[in-house]
Design a binder for these strands. Structure first.
Length: 505
RNA sequence: GCUCCGAUAGUGUAGCACGGCCAAUCAUGUCAGACUCUCACUCUGACGACCUGGGUUCAAAUCCCAGUCGGAGCACCA
């Protein structure tokens, strides 16, 4: 039956329902609702080996959005149990907390794994006593071969007593790195090789960067163990993590089973790639900063939250952007256009307008009296700015390249001119009437006074250097719009020099 | 090799647990137009998708099977 036929039929059968038929369903936006019984406790668990990135932002925002909505508890836990390979950065702990606050994700509790090592040792010992873990002395390749063949290694059944004895030696530093590990007994013949007898502790003699920890420990837990114990200690009821950690659940459940704990609910999301930034690893960025390729972790070319902030993206825009991504397990590859569009809606109504001429070319204007141009600070909010003009202005090279001799055009908020020469660039004053634009469809270009401020804009695709009108220096730390250029955040002002970070078009 | 995920317009999503109201939502993007002393904002219109093949059924984006493609894990990284 067609739609029309259906509708006709309904008119006869139940005319009162015809309106309902036409109603459109309003789908729920954003995150899927949670089915929870009992309190919601969630944790965001970064390794502070670099500053939070756009990827971290997803974790921060989604966790905080859920705990906010369901009156749950939000915990930030620093999974900093690798002093060597993914060595934490001391500054990064603060950066995470700062960026979380900026994003409106205020944690109810902050824990640092490296402060809680003794607790992990306790659980490890209990597991050994339950014969759920053993010290393994196999070399990595040897164990791998056995594991692939579903064969137990000789240490697997060496007995609880021997394991306890070796565990004590492991803790006291009697073994060297690579010599011994503590493995969780799972199922050596498990059909999924990723699950078979995984490593819970290894020996690292590199001191931890945190002075409070230093060289206190030489047996360090791996993520699966540390996370498993912490999620129980913290009372976590819902874990959202990347798909790459999906197997963790299967591994960690062995610990939970031995200990008689209840495993939290889990959700996963797929990998995120951002067009504008491609694949940048934390370690790669770190190296590039050291080499001077980037100015720092907040370089506008970097996908860190610090950089995004410096560029003038509002936290609400980033939150909405992340929430609208939802919670799919599909790997996504996204463009920041949507984030920019979201931010533009926030920033456009409040950003004052200014002229900034990049790649400036001087234009001599004949026949014009010096005057003070008056231009609105904002197209709809009122307020004026005043720009003194003499006998010359600066205009953009871009615009000059398209000009033809004899062409008439309007200098925005100033007056009309006619081009009399291209190189050198000269023009003559031809009046002030807007009819030139309205009736003759002349172009409008913007300009700047030759004695304006030196302005440098740092953007993801390079630097723009030029001259801006005076007044910009009063907008320090604010987002303004450079007309016909885009939005920027005024980052610093010193004397006649302004540095701005490009927000978006 | 073994194991686990996933697949809706250019991009991101809604719909899928309970098949019909899906001739498939919303946002962004692109194009066109209106407004505008900015290439911004706002408004209008247009464009554009159910991975493939089978099966079940009166009816499949939705359920089942196979395939294809993509991702991940099998680390003494997180």
């Amino acid at each position: 039956m067609s739609h029309e036929a259906r509708e006709e039929e309904l008119k006869v059968l139940a005319p009162e329902l015809i309106e309902e038929l036409k109603e459109k369903k309003e789908p729920d936006k954003g995150l899927p609702p949670l089915e929870m019984n009992g309190p919601l406790v969630m944790r965001f668990a970064p390794n502070p080996n670099g500053p939070p990135t756009l990827g971290s932002a997803r974790g921060i925002v989604v966790n905080s959005e859920y705990t906010r909505k369901y009156h749950g508890k939000l915990i930030i836990r620093f999974d900093d149990t690798d002093p060597a390979t993914k060595r934490p950065m001391l500054e990064a702990y603060g950066w995470y907390l700062d960026d979380c606050r900026w994003l409106g994700a205020i944690p109810d509790e902050v824990v640092i794994a490296s402060d809680r090592i003794p607790r992990y040792y306790e659980v490890a010992e209990q597991l050994i006593r339950k014969d759920g873990a053993y010290i393994c002395f196999c070399e990595q390749e040897v164990f791998k071969a056995l594991k692939d063949a579903k064969e137990p290694c000789p240490h697997r059944e060496q007995g609880v007593e021997k394991n306890l004895e070796c565990w004590k030696k492991m803790l006291s530093g009697d073994y060297e790195e690579q010599e011994a590990v503590l493995r969780i007994k799972t199922d050596i013949a498990h059909k999924d090789p990723a699950i078979r007898d995984w490593v819970a502790f290894r020996i690292i003699k590199t001191p931890h960067p945190r002075p409070e920890v230093g060289d206190k420990y030489c047996a360090w837990p791996l993520l699966d163990f540390e996370g498993a114990v912490e999620d129980h200690l913290l009372g976590t009821t819902l874990i959202i993590r990347g798909k790459d950690l999906a197997d963790s659940e299967k591994r960690q459940k062995y610990v939970y089973k031995y200990m008689g704990w209840t495993y939290p609910k889990t959700m996963h999301w797929g990998r995120v790639q951002i067009h504008e930034f491609g694949k940048l690893s934390t370690s790669g960025i770190k190296k590039a900063i050291a080499e001077g390729i980037y100015t720092g972790w907040d370089d506008p070319r970097l996908p860190t939250i610090r950089a995004i902030r410096r560029r003038g993206i509002m936290p609400e825009a980033l939150r909405k952007f992340m929430i609208d991504l939802g919670l799919g397990e599909t790997d996504i590859s996204l463009s920041l256009d949507t984030l920019y569009a979201e931010n533009r809606k926030l920033v456009d109504p409040v950003a004052n307008r200014y002229f900034f001429v990049w790649d400036p070319v001087e234009m001599i204007i004949e026949g014009a009296e010096p005057k003070i141009a008056k231009a609105p600070l904002h197209p709809s909010r009122g307020g004026m700015r005043e720009i003194p003009v003499g006998t010359a202005v600066l205009v953009c090279r871009n615009d000059v390249d398209t000009l033809k001799e004899g062409e008439k055009l309007r200098l925005k908020d100033l007056y009309n001119i006619q081009i009399t020469g291209i190189s050198p660039l000269t023009a003559k004053f031809i009046g002030t009437n807007m009819d030139l634009v309205k009736k003759e469809k002349a172009r409008i270009i913007h300009w700047a006074p030759p004695d304006g401020l030196k302005v440098k804009v740092l953007s993801p695709d390079g630097e723009y250097i030029g001259i801006g009108e005076r007044g910009i220096e009063r907008e320090l730390d604010k987002v303004v719009q450079f007309e016909r250029f885009g939005f920027v955040r005024i980052d610093s002002v010193s004397g006649d020099e302004v540095m701005a970070y490009f927000t978006h078009k």
